[in-house]
């Protein structure tokens, strides 16, 4: 059996569940209904089948996840992905980090930002605006939520609007949730 990955990567791994997923041919109508609203996505099959053990939650969760990640207006797609990565790195969720680092790299057509984050897990080599986003998302994600007025004001000084800051709060919060499912219920395995 392959050992789980422990280092950050932008190559999307396989997600191996730690508990038995719902078997599709034995799924209830409620479970099928909850799974239907899920977009087809790389490696997400097993994950959705695991979450289908709680279909009522899954039913609300999928549109909420997509709404925060893909709604128009507010924070740009690439900065939304940066917020997702910041939280996922703090929580050491290798799978979530890989998926969203990969999307960030596709959207920006560069790998330097993610390579720099993987190297030292800080915002050391980012632009001021990227730094402000990364630091706020990281601090909001920590259990003690130790951000200060300066961290919020750094967002404003970097030119983020209220709409953008709210979206950053939402995406960082969303990954407080997603990391605690993905990293707890399964392991990232190199394909």
């Amino acid at each position: 059996m392959n050992t789980p990955l422990t280092k950050f990567t932008n190559k999307i791994p396989f997600w191996r569940p730690r508990i038995a997923p719902v078997e599709l041919d034995k799924a209830t109508d409620e479970q099928l209904n909850a799974m239907k609203v899920t977009p087809s996505d790389t490696g997400i099959g097993e994950y959705v089948l695991v979450l289908a053990h709680d279909p009522e939650m899954l039913h609300a969760r999928t549109p909420l996840f997509n709404g925060i990640m893909y709604s128009h207006g507010g924070l740009s797609r690439q900065e939304t992905e940066l917020g997702a990565v910041a939280t996922s790195v703090l929580n050491h969720c290798i799978y979530c980090t890989a998926v969203h680092a990969n999307r960030y790299n596709q959207l920006t057509e560069t790998e330097e930002v993610m390579e720099s984050i993987f190297a030292d897990q800080t915002s050391a080599n980012l632009s001021d605006r990227q730094k402000a986003i990364f630091n706020f998302a990281t601090k909001l994600s920590s259990t003690q939520s130790e951000w200060s007025e300066a961290d919020v004001l750094a967002l404003v000084e970097s030119g983020l609007s209220k709409d953008e800051i709210l979206d950053l709060v939402l995406v960082s919060s969303l990954f407080a949730w997603a990391n605690r499912l993905m990293h707890i219920l399964g392991d990232p395995i190199e394909l």
Binding site: R61, S145, V169, S173, A178, L181, I184, L185
Partner: peptide, 27 residues
Amino acid sequence: TEDIVRLSELIAFVNYEIRVVKGIRSM
């Protein structure tokens, strides 16, 4: 198994709620 997923969602979701509340309050 079902209850492990229910508990995981409960823990994870409340952690989401806490950050939304704290973030909005701070804004």
